[in-house]
Amino acid sequence: MLNLVSPSNIYFILEKIIKFINSIFFLILLISLTFALILSPPDYLQGDSVRIMYVHVPSAWIALACYTSIAFLSILNFIFKIKNFFLINKSIAPIGLLFTCLAVVTGSIWGQPTWGTWWEWDARLTSMLVLMFFYIGYILAIKTIKNESFAIKISSIIAIVGMINIPIIKYSVDWWNTLHQPASIRLTGSSSIHTSMLMPLLLMLLVLLLYSALIFLMKYKTEIIRMKKKNIKRL
């Protein structure tokens, strides 16, 4: 058992986890979509357009979680100079960008039936757009800078500076008057969402988290192989 979790077995472990996620993914996706599109009730005000929440909200949560992880690992990388953190960040960043784009696009689609507009330069929407630009900047820094240690430095600076935007996104609906509704789900305090809507929301979150894990593991495996390829050339 201990031998299985040793760092040198990482490739096998990643492969086993990928296989496990693949085996359960479609079943959970099917159940979640059934809840989100059929079983959950329409909202008394927004009608059926509320179902957009089941892709919009988890996307936004994952986008924020990915960025926070990248910024946190970048700080650790600055202090401890562990290259693995950079590889992890490199694998997380495209997932974060994907979900930021999805949160912005689905939010925009949701805006049309509820607010009567596709886009408004309000605090929440603008700060999410800023997050998207930080992700693009981060990924571009990694892809375009040839010197790896310089790329790590610049991308880490972008990630850490962009961290300022995370509390702005979170509290934008409380600090400013925005079109966007305040948070319905609170970790501390009572949530204003009914269980019949909370259940599909959590199921869709699980699906998108499993998907993110799958993409992360495949990207991380790619990064490991890329690193090993370089090592062969050195030998």
Partner: peptide
């Protein structure tokens, strides 16, 4: 249209 578009895009 809006619901299917959101799920479809995702």
């Amino acid at each position: 249209l809006f619901v299917w578009l959101s799920f479809g895009v995702t």
